[in-house]
């Protein structure tokens, strides 16, 4: 099972890299965007899907990562070092945001993260020496392990590799004691306490790890856009990421990737369909509508998200080999999903 998953992950990464090489710079741009969004969504999935802590501050955390990585890279640090630094700094801020979660539950905490998002956005604009203020921070693409990232294709490949590493690390994490502790905390803090788990510490770890991954994703966003500006890391971005993990499937590990691809590519797809029929500007207004409707419809009718469709679809096609059904994506988050899914 484990080798299969590894092979599958490697195959997906290889296909993504091949796509970016085949489809030119615009293709590479899209592959990179999907890969980076995938990393950010994995980070949020750990927090919301696994540990049950709702956060609306993902957009701002990505911003922290972009600013830190950008500053480190501009100061001459290697790309790897810059990403790790961004991860560390964002982990610290993530844990700081998580502090109220040790006292507050559910809704109160979710609203506290709204505050964190707003305050960080304000700081991005004000801390001019570090963030460049409203003009933003112009970022140079650093070398990775001393090798220059000469083209968009290479930078897409770097993002895909980081995605691969993140995915493997996080799926591995969920099979450790800490990973299981996340699930218990999500289901019931009372039960977790009863089992002798240190709830506060478990939550703090979730925030730190999720923050680390968000920082790395943010750093990659900075390198890709070559500018970190406050307007790029708003609450809208947080909403996009929450949409990704919901559309993809809350609490599964394939879900965030499917959701990221969906949310990144959907506007482009609508745009191209619109252009094909010469109604692009009309559809422009409708693309947000489609986005919102999708969120609502998925939550009501398919709470387990797009990723749950994949194995089921395959199952219907290959009835003879039922073993194939579990091939893609472990449904560790089935509990979350069935809460909403198993209605009379």
């Amino acid at each position: 099972m484990s080798t299969r998953r590894l092979l599958l992950a490697l195959a997906v990464a290889a296909v993504l890299i091949a796509l970016s090489l085949l489809l030119g710079r615009f293709g590479a741009y899209l592959v990179r965007a999907v890969a980076i969004a995938g990393i950010g969504a994995l980070s949020l999935n750990l927090l919301i899907g696994y540990c049950g802590q709702i956060s609306f501050a993902q957009g701002a955390l990505l911003g922290v990562g972009a600013y830190v990585a950008g500053n480190l890279g501009n100061a001459g640090a290697d790309g790897v070092l810059a990403l790790l630094g961004a991860g560390a700094a964002t982990a610290a801020i993530g844990a700081l945001i998580g502090l109220p979660a040790l006292r507050l539950r559910g809704l109160y905490f979710a609203i506290a993260t709204l505050a964190a998002q707003a305050i960080l956005e304000y700081l991005f604009k004000m801390l001019e020496p570090f963030t460049g203020g409203v003009s933003g921070l112009v970022i140079r693409q650093p070398a990775f392990f001393g090798l220059p990232v000469a083209s968009d294709q290479v930078s897409a490949a770097v993002s895909v590799l980081v995605l691969l590493i993140t995915w493997l690390a996080l799926t591995r994490l969920t099979r450790t004691n800490l990973g299981r502790a996340f699930l218990v905390v999500r289901e019931s803090e009372v039960v977790a306490k009863g089992m002798g788990l240190d709830v506060a510490r478990t939550k703090a770890w979730a925030f730190a790890i999720s923050g680390f991954v968000a920082g790395v994703a943010g750093g990659l966003i900075g390198f890709a856009a070559r500018l970190a500006s406050p307007e790029a890391f708003t609450l809208d971005l947080s909403a996009d990421y929450i949409a990704m993990i919901i559309v993809g499937g809350l609490g599964s590990w394939a879900g965030p990737l499917v959701g990221a691809a969906f949310v990144v590519l959907l506007p482009e797809a609508i745009q191209r369909v619109g252009e094909a029929f010469d109604i692009a500007n009309l559809l422009s207004a409708l693309r947000e509508l489609a986005f919102g409707l999708l969120i609502i419809l998925f939550l009501i009718f398919e709470p387990r998200g797009l990723s749950s469709l994949l194995p089921r679809l395959r199952w219907t096609q290959r009835r003879q080999t039922p073993g194939a059904a579990t091939g893609f994506g472990e449904r560790a988050g089935a509990a979350v999903a069935t809460k909403g899914g198993e209605r009379p």
Binding site: G52, I54, A110, A239, I242, I246, R287, F291, L294, I296
Partner: peptide
């Protein structure tokens, strides 16, 4: 779950604006 309900209202907000 709570997160799903919050998100669905966020979806409503996005739809209404659009």
């Amino acid at each position: 779950p709570v997160v799903a309900v919050m998100m669905v209202t966020l979806g409503l907000l996005i739809c209404a604006r659009a």
